[in-house]
């Protein structure tokens, strides 16, 4: 078996185990409505995870994605709703800023952790300026899109499949995606092959910014309102999602499909807990425990895979 397919298979198996556990606990979840409830919030998390995966693919880490998604959500609930042109212009500027951050990190050889840490304050500050108190309202079209009821499968699943397919095509199938992962693997040889690593890194960050924008817009479509802290936990969730999905921090070894599965696993984990009727004190702790169990399953599967 090719290593790339193996990278996806193991997260998919551990996801299936968790899903089976949920169905066993609550058989009624095995329906259109049940699945919709389980994966309701998966779409924005999956998009943010793809953004993080792109940055991780070039050996960087984005600690600002959570505040960035919050910022986008605030813009969506205000500017994009009131004057769509201005809203889109802000998004274009935000994506350009992301590209600029990539250029800065590359030219000055800065640690991405610290630059994105600084950017997280900037996005957070802008979000507070736009929406000092929770509020705003979702543009009707995104509300309609996110709550649509397609036949057979709930919107959250359909959207996740589309996200996984698009991201897979970009990262694994296009020449840009190959070069992008090459930057993470061996930047010098990519440079020698005639690519500009500077342009690649800028494009990667711009693309990450675009997925961040999509995450924020889709989040507001689900929540109908925004506040400056709405997506802060996405920073850690997206990193966990990439790793759960079989990605690695270095070497450009990532998987787009795996990342979406990782995001779905994390969403499922928190839904799972509401079914367990656990005391609220232990909700967060149980999420940590599930994360550990999923990683343990991955280890066991990994070992058997190697033996077999």
């Amino acid at each position: 078996m090719k290593p790339d397919s193996l990278r996806v298979l193991i997260p998919a198996l551990s996801f299936a185990v968790l899903l089976a556990a949920v169905f066993w606990l609550q058989p009624r979840a095995m329906s259109y409505l049940g699945l919709n409830l389980l994966f309701n919030l998966a779409v924005p998390i999956a998009l943010a995870t793809i953004a993080q995966m792109l940055v991780i693919a070039v050996n960087d880490l984005d600690l600002s994605i959570g505040t960035f998604v919050s910022f986008v959500a605030c813009v969506t609930a205000t500017f994009l709703n009131d004057s769509p042109v201005l809203g889109l212009a802000i998004f274009a500027a935000a994506i350009a800023t992301y590209a600029l951050v990539g250029v800065l990190i590359h030219l000055r050889e800065l640690p991405s952790i610290v630059v994105s840490l600084g950017m997280s304050f900037v996005w957070g500050g802008l979000a507070v300026l736009i929406l000092p108190a929770p509020g705003g309202s979702a543009p009707p079209w995104i509300r309609a899109l996110m709550t649509a009821k397609p036949p057979l499968l709930p919107m959250a699943i359909v959207a996740s499949l589309v996200i996984a397919a698009v991201a897979h095509l970009i990262v694994m199938r296009s020449s840009f995606g190959t070069a992008l992962r090459g930057v993470g693997g061996n930047a010098r040889s990519v440079e020698r092959a005639g690519w500009s690593v500077l342009k690649l890194r800028a494009a990667t960050y711009a693309l990450a910014g675009l997925f961040g924008v999509l995450a924020g817009v889709s989040l507001v479509g689900l929540t109908t309102a925004a506040d400056a802290n709405i997506a802060l936990r996405y920073t850690l969730l997206s990193i966990a999602g990439v790793i759960l999905g079989g990605g690695e921090f270095t070497g450009g070894r990532v998987s787009a499909i795996g990342a979406v599965i990782g995001a779905l696993t994390l969403t499922l984990a928190s839904s799972f807990l509401t079914f367990l009727r656990l005391s609220p004190d232990w909700q967060i702790g149980a999420q940590g425990a599930i994360l550990i169990v999923v990683l343990a399953i991955r280890l066991v599967l990994n070992r058997q895979e190697r033996r077999g």
Partner: peptide
């Protein structure tokens, strides 16, 4: 808001 933005820019 402005305080957060300036904090970020100065760190960078």
């Amino acid at each position: 808001g402005v305080r957060l933005i300036l904090t970020g820019l100065i760190i960078i």
